[in-house]
């Protein structure tokens, strides 16, 4: 989703805009899902990546997809494969960046992940840890269509975006109380499941694919100033009829073109 107003603007300004947007988001009752999605989209724009996503610790020793620059099923699968092996899991376990400039040379290291990633035409993959003091709570994952190393400056930008995501997920209280980190992470992961359930529901009800279902969810949430996860919950529990999310009802058709 390229913002036409920002194309042609120098990257420094776009970067600044990304942080201003993030700071604007981090007020009172913000929507973690929407914030992370926007950060992932910014990662793609600013780092010239093919796709970006955030994976979160499930606190059982593995990772779950939390947000992605788009919701195509194949892309989500690529993220989720890394619950078992891949750059994200390694970055999460070591707390260090894992930079893979040429995937074709890494098949032995990740025999399941690499062929799948290459089938989707990705050639470079980078993973950066999302850190809170001594803890690593997840990883930012960047996919590129061209092989090649990530430069120093891009690495700094990616690290900063990963930090913003960490702050956004944990919210400020978490910094002080250890147990709240668990409560927030588990809440975020369960919200993600609710969103998947709602995507399936909308996909069947409206005959659309999962990415279009996701856009319907977001469009409605923004139009009604409510959280994506709350809309998803109300849909799945039957409180909100799916027809309310059809373009032209409530949120207005002009938003539907964003995908």
């Amino acid at each position: 989703m390229n913002d036409p107003a920002l194309s042609g603007v120098p990257r420094e300004l776009r970067l600044l805009q990304a942080f201003v947007d993030a700071a604007d988001t981090l007020v009172d009752d913000y929507d973690v899902t929407e914030m992370l999605h926007q950060l992932a989209v910014r990662c793609v724009e600013l780092l010239d990546a093919g796709a970006a996503g955030f994976m979160l610790s499930d606190q059982r020793g593995s990772l779950q997809v939390l947000a992605s620059s788009d919701e195509r099923t194949q892309l989500l699968e690529l993220f989720q494969l890394q619950a078992d092996e891949g750059p994200c899991l390694d970055s999460f376990r070591t707390g260090q960046p894992v930079l893979v400039s040429d995937l074709s040379e890494s098949e032995q290291r990740w025999p399941q992940f690499v062929p799948e990633a290459m089938r989707e035409n990705y050639r470079a993959v980078h993973a950066l840890p999302m850190r809170l003091r001594q803890q690593t709570i997840g990883a930012l994952n960047l996919f590129g269509h061209q092989p090649g190393p990530i430069n120093e400056q891009d690495l700094l930008v990616a690290g900063a975006l990963a930090d913003v995501a960490t702050i956004g997920i944990l919210q400020e209280r978490a910094i002080h109380r250890g147990e709240v980190v668990t409560e927030q992470l588990q809440d975020a992961l369960n919200n993600r499941i609710t969103i998947e359930q709602a995507k399936g529901l909308l996909s069947h009800a409206h005959g659309v694919d999962m990415n279009q279902a996701w856009e319907q969810l977001r469009t409605y949430s923004r139009g009604n100033r409510t959280r994506v996860s709350d809309v998803a919950y109300r849909l799945v529990t039957g409180e909100l009829p799916p027809v309310a999310l059809l373009p032209g009802r409530g949120a207005g058709p002009e938003h539907a073109k964003l995908s």
Partner: peptide
Amino acid sequence: AEVHQATGMLI
């Protein structure tokens, strides 16, 4: 994720 999506479709 597919299990959750399929659950939604069945709902």
